[in-house]
Amino acid sequence: MSTTLDVVAAVLVLIGSLFALTAAIGLVRFPDTLSRMHPGTKPQVLGLVLVLIGAGLRLRDSVDLGMLVLAALFALITSPLFAHLVGRLSYREQSVRTDLMTVDEMDEPDE
């Protein structure tokens, strides 16, 4: 049973690392801040959670599991907040490419 859990843990860590790698590639390749917010939040957090689950399967201690759960919760809570604040700031500073936007929901109508 221990060998099976170790293999599952290794696979989860490997898959999580691949998600983190694709997030890093996306951060480098995408053209503007709003486009970079997606790989900076979604695959990065999913990769981190998979790595933490793999580490939890490998460690199997209650203290270690508690710390891993807290790390995962912190990442899941702060990632959307971070993306929202970065998106708002980049929009307000007009450092976004409007030609890539299909709908501008923050545009104030001229009255």
Rank of each mutant, 00 (worst) to 15 (best):
L5Y: 14
L12S: 11
D107K: 15
L65P: 08
R97F: 04
T22W: 09
S35A: 15
V103N: 07
T78G: 08
A55W: 02
R88T: 02
S62A: 14
L57N: 07
M101K: 02
L68P: 05
L89E: 11
L81N: 03
R92P: 01
S79P: 09
S2Q: 08
V103P: 02
L59M: 11
D104W: 09
F82D: 05
D32C: 07
L100W: 07
G40D: 08
V8L: 15
D6N: 12
T41S: 15
L89V: 07
G26V: 06
V11M: 07
G40I: 08
L73H: 00
S79D: 13
T102Q: 14
S79H: 00
H38A: 11
A72P: 07
A10I: 07
E93N: 05
R29A: 12
V7D: 00
L12Q: 02
V11R: 03
L5T: 13
A20W: 15
D107Q: 15
T78L: 15
I25Q: 00
D32R: 00
L14H: 10
D6S: 13
R58V: 03
T78M: 10
R92L: 15
P80H: 14
M67T: 04
D61G: 13
Y91Q: 03
L46C: 06
L59K: 08
F19T: 09
L76F: 03
L81C: 05
R60C: 03
R36N: 00
A72W: 01
S95D: 11
T33C: 15
G56E: 12
L46Y: 10
L59V: 12
S62D: 12
L52C: 08
L65I: 11
P43D: 10
F74H: 13
A23D: 05
D32A: 00
E93F: 03
R36V: 10
A75P: 11
F30A: 12
D107F: 06
I53K: 05
L85C: 06
F19H: 11
V45A: 13
D110R: 10
S95A: 13
D64W: 02
L12N: 08
D6T: 09
R92Q: 09
A83C: 01
E93T: 10
V28G: 01
E93H: 10
V8H: 01
G56H: 04
L27S: 01
R36S: 05
L5C: 04
I53P: 01
P109Y: 09
A10P: 03
P31W: 03
L70K: 11
M1L: 13
G16Y: 01
Q94M: 05
G40Q: 06
M67W: 13
P109V: 14
A23L: 10
I15F: 05
R60G: 06
V51E: 06
D110Q: 12
R92I: 01
L46N: 03
V86D: 04
I53Y: 03
R36C: 09
L5W: 08
R92S: 11
V69T: 14
